[in-house]
């Protein structure tokens, strides 16, 4: 059955308006979703960075409070690390092994990389970096480094040396970007 021409034309126009409204609404929704997703991503990335920084500082605090590497109280009363103890403790930590010593430190420090740089080492007359701890995760990337200054006591020279800890955390998986 054929419809009158005027009716068909009016119906087509009304249908087109509806489509336009739907398209505009969908467009606004898509823009909103993209905007919301970006905002959420930035917020999550910021939170992850904050947590990483806090964890890095906790790791340094944990290291500085280890009684097994602390200085002799007769040498210094403040927080200080004995260089030889630090080196020998570092040589005992292997996160791939199953001995209780390694498991203890690896559970305490988590996945990360910790080095200590002695700014003016007497042996080298320049900066010396010691790898204290390294426990990486598969398919992980290291985050930004955190630095913390401290004092290191060298029992051989009897000197207290200026040094800093450099802590990076490992994060599993790809980043958002």
């Amino acid at each position: 059955m054929r419809r009158p021409a005027s009716c068909a034309r009016r119906g087509q126009i009304q249908f087109g308006e509806t489509i336009m409204v739907v398209v505009v609404i969908v467009f606004i929704l898509i823009v909103g979703i993209v905007f919301y997703f970006n905002a959420s991503r930035n917020s999550v990335e910021k939170q992850i960075r904050t947590v990483d920084q806090a964890q890095s500082m906790t790791v340094v605090n944990n290291i500085l409070s280890l009684p097994e590497i602390g200085c002799d109280p007769s040498v210094t009363t403040g927080r200080c690390v004995d260089l030889l103890k630090l080196e020998h403790l570092a040589s005992q930590i292997d996160c791939g092994s199953s001995d209780p010593t390694s498991k203890y430190y690896c559970s305490l420090f988590g996945a990360g990389l910790v080095t200590i740089t002695i700014v003016d080492a007497p042996q080298t007359s320049g900066p010396t970096t010691i790898l204290f701890y390294n426990s990486s995760l598969p398919n992980s990337t290291a985050t930004d480094s955190q630095f913390r200054f401290t004092t290191v006591y060298d029992p051989v020279s009897g000197e207290q040396l200026f040094a800093y800890f450099n802590v990076s955390r490992y994060q599993r998986g790809a980043s958002f970007g």
Partner: peptide
């Protein structure tokens, strides 16, 4: 006691270094 083993091993290594020095 687990920590005792770690501390002792660390100190033995330290004493060796001091003796060498």
């Amino acid at each position: 006691t687990e920590r005792l083993n770690t501390s002792v091993t660390t100190l033995i290594g330290r004493i060796d270094d001091l003796r060498d020095a």
